[in-house]
Amino acid sequence: MISLQRTAGALRTHNPATPHDGIIATPQRIAAGLAPLIVPVLLLGAWEAVARFRLLPAYLFPPPSAVLAELRSLAFSGQLALHLGRSFERVLAGFALGAATATLAGALTGYSQRWRRLLDPTIQSLRSIPAIAWVPIFILWLGIAEPSKIALIAVGVFFPVYLNLMAGIANVDRKLIEAARVYRLRGARLVRTVLLPASLPSYVTGLRTGFSLAWMFVVAAELMGASQGIGFLLLDGENNGQPALILASMLIFALAGKSTDLAITLGARRVRAWQDILENR
């Protein structure tokens, strides 16, 4: 066994990587690719077994097959597209609003000491208010319809984006800023040419955290009163005693959140190609 591995290792070193190297599916690669699936498959098996052998009552604990059937009927009836579309609209609108204001505020406070002294203490104290605590006042001010939901999501998105961007800008290598000063870069041009690109890795972290929070807060927003959206489906499942619908909605959130996170990560990889880091080797 050991000698086999060593031979394989030796062969590899004599075969320099080709551009197609990433596509060839060696047994090791397939095994590595499947590794993340092991735990979910085991969990699903255990879940199915618990339901099948009636270890827990079926009206509380439906088997995966029932959840899948629920998902399928949602998809074919057009309900899935309708509710997911609605939630996604809210997530996008809230994210856009929260991220845009956070980018402006973070760029200002990261770049300028004066703006930081003026704004940051207030923003930091607002941060200690749990985002959910804004719900009553938003409903009072903005009503129960879309604006209050989008405002809640925007509040949730704002803080991680703001904090990461400000820290990212404040931590930019002083030597690069000095070089930029020699070449007379100042103000908005310095921010655009040096500070934003340099803080991009930290900014992307903020955007990812912000987007996952947007998915969290859309549930809260939809639980507080909505007639459409995945959060509404959750509530509908609770009110009508349909655990399969609840679990199907949770699954939809998991998949939607994972997909948008992947999209941001892949998008960020393109703009981070300049970084001399392990990922780009």
Partner: peptide, 25 residues
Amino acid sequence: GVVFQEPRLMPWLNVRDNVGLGVWD
């Protein structure tokens, strides 16, 4: 013009754009 001990290039700009910083205005 100033040349520092380290190159101090902007890592996200290619060679041409880094040199271009010297004459952007």
